[in-house]
């Protein structure tokens, strides 16, 4: 009996070693150790080069909260996220409604609108940089439109708007696919019944379709919030934080602090604060989307 127990145990250990250990080892070395080491870095004045590393306590966190540029960066990110979430969700719903309305070539439209999402943010940002720098200004000069004559990317507010436009452009095709999935699960007979009762197309959208896809709406809103907060690649290639550091969103700001100013301790402290913000968004997301599921 003892012997069989032992053999079973040994078999279980082998099983774990073979199937679980590789993943565990990789995860610990790539995720857990850097995370713990990162917390230690926030407590030091390390600049990446210095041989002497001093323990400074919570000074880096104090710096993060008393640094006005960090505050501006946070506010800019919130403004950017707010408008991006609204614009991309409205566009996403409209595109999904159009593409599921029974028109010809639905699938081709779907493929077309989704295209920006398979291309990396770095490339997309650069493409739009050329558009904003040369194509828009050419239109402005040709049609004598004052606010389009100079590039938007050289103007602080307009550069942020440019960032919002490009992000919404990319994200709306993505959200569209989620909304399509929601819309195709709306029972057909409900829509037919509403038609029979003499409802207009607009009424059907607002009183039948939209209420029935509120789960998709919740998913999409949170998805776009977290995507907007994590935005980095496009920020780097489209505006590079400029002009005059006016479009440095949080993720980009952390990168600058760490690898341009070489302030590792401070950069890591910013990253931890950023992590807390993102974690709160994710927890809210879990809370609200679960609640939505329960209600149905």
């Amino acid at each position: 009996m003892m012997r069989r127990d032992f053999r079973k145990r040994f078999g279980d250990i082998l099983c774990f070693a073979g199937f679980g250990l590789p993943a565990l080892v990789i995860w610990i070395s790539v995720v857990l150790i850097p995370f713990i080491f990162g917390i230690w870095i926030t407590l030091t004045d390390w600049n990446g080069l210095a041989m002497q590393i001093h323990f400074v306590g919570f000074e880096n966190f104090h710096d993060v909260f008393s640094d006005p540029t960090m505050g501006t960066s946070f506010i800019k990110t919130v403004i950017y996220a707010f408008f991006t979430v609204i614009a991309s969700n409205i566009m996403g719903i409209l595109l999904a409604l159009a593409v599921t309305s029974g028109i010809k070539g639905q699938n081709l439209f779907r493929i077309g609108f989704f295209t920006p999402n398979i291309i990396g943010g770095i490339i997309l940002g650069y493409i739009w940089r050329f558009i904003f720098l040369y194509a828009f200004t050419a239109v402005g000069k040709g049609l004598e439109i004052e606010w389009m004559k100079t590039s938007w990317l050289t103007h602080p507010t307009r550069a942020l708007i440019a960032l919002i436009i490009v992000s919404s452009w990319q994200l709306s095709g993505y959200l569209m696919v989620i909304y399509i999935a929601g819309l195709t699960s709306v029972p057909k007979d409900l829509i037919d019944a509403a038609y029979a009762d003499g409802a207009s197309a607009l009424q059907i959208v607002s009183t039948v379709k939209l209420p029935l896809i509120r789960n998709s709406i919740a998913i999409c809103i949170f998805l776009s919030i977290s995507r907007a907060f994590m935005s980095f690649d496009m920020n780097l290639s489209l505006t590079a934080g400029g002009p005059y550091k006016s479009t440095e969103l949080i993720a980009y700001k952390i990168y600058q602090t760490a690898f341009t100013s070489m302030e590792f301790g401070k950069g890591q402290a910013q990253a931890i604060v950023f992590f807390v913000i993102v974690a709160i968004i994710s927890l809210l997301q879990v809370y609200f989307t679960r609640k939505g599921v329960d209600e149905q």
């Binding site: 790539v30 995720v31 150790i33 850097p34 995370f35 080491f37 990162g38 870095i41 994590m230 980095f232 993720a251 952390i254 990168y255 760490a258 590792f264 950069g267 890591q268 990253a271 931890i272 950023f274 992590f275 993102v278 974690a279």
Partner: peptide
């Protein structure tokens, strides 16, 4: 956790 938390360490 976003990647930014891991990048410096």
């Amino acid at each position: 956790a976003p990647f930014q938390v891991y990048m410096i360490p």
